[in-house]
Design a protein around this nucleic acid. Structure first.
Lengths: 103, 103
DNA sequence: CCATATCGTAAGCCATAACTTACAGTAAGT
DNA sequence: ACTTACTGTAAGTTATGGCTTACGATATGG
């Protein structure tokens, strides 16, 4: 039960933009914060939140610190969404067939 | 570009619980608010947010109002997550193979 | 027509969270 | 050893958002 952490982490637009900058590969904090409307410490805090949600992993490289996406967390969120998606489609189907559902 | 609304809507635990109560079928506001730790107006506000995010649809039935899950919004969110998932797995794979990525 | 049921909205309160500036710590280069 | 580069954290401010209570609106039933 960790998809809730991932959802909360990906809700904020700025934090999601930080996360999406890692989509094409691992980067350092400075590279991520480059050309961003917020300060570098803000990016650092967002990365901390993403890390606690299990969405990223970090690793030191010299005095810098490299962040990369941790795929398993996305898988977990995907599975939760898949289960929901199936049930919702079933109910949508029975609804479209005119059969009245529970009340 | 509406997956961002869905993410923001599903981030709050209480609102997600409201949403999950519609997983097994359509319900009225009163039925959803029954045995909930928050008041009925709070549930109503959550339903409004879910509706604006395209996650639910409402329909009057007498003096009551029936809410049901709107599956297409979930599909949209799923597709965004799928694209992300693929890229993240690719990078994870090249990382596991020891090949250094962009820097 | 009056009473009841069901719901949405407005106003206000309060906790949370996102941001900035300032500071401290570590690593590498000279 | 000193400087530079890169980062995390603490403190404080401000805005956002979720909640409650109070009220207004619509539909059904007697």
């Amino acid at each position: 039960m960790a998809y809730d952490m991932a959802l909360a982490a990906l809700a904020d637009p700025t934090r999601r933009k930080v996360f999406e900058r890692l989509r094409s590969g691992a980067r350092s904090v400075g590279e991520i914060a480059r050309d961003m409307p917020v300060s570098r410490p803000a990016v650092s805090q967002h990365l901390k939140a993403l890390k606690q949600a299990g969405l990223v992993r970090d690793e030191p490289r010299g005095s810098a610190r490299i962040y990369r996406i941790h795929a398993p967390a996305l898988t977990e969120l995907r599975e939760w969404l898949d289960g929901f998606w199936g049930d919702a489609l079933d109910n949508f189907k029975t609804f479209a067939e005119g059969e009245d559902e529970r009340r």
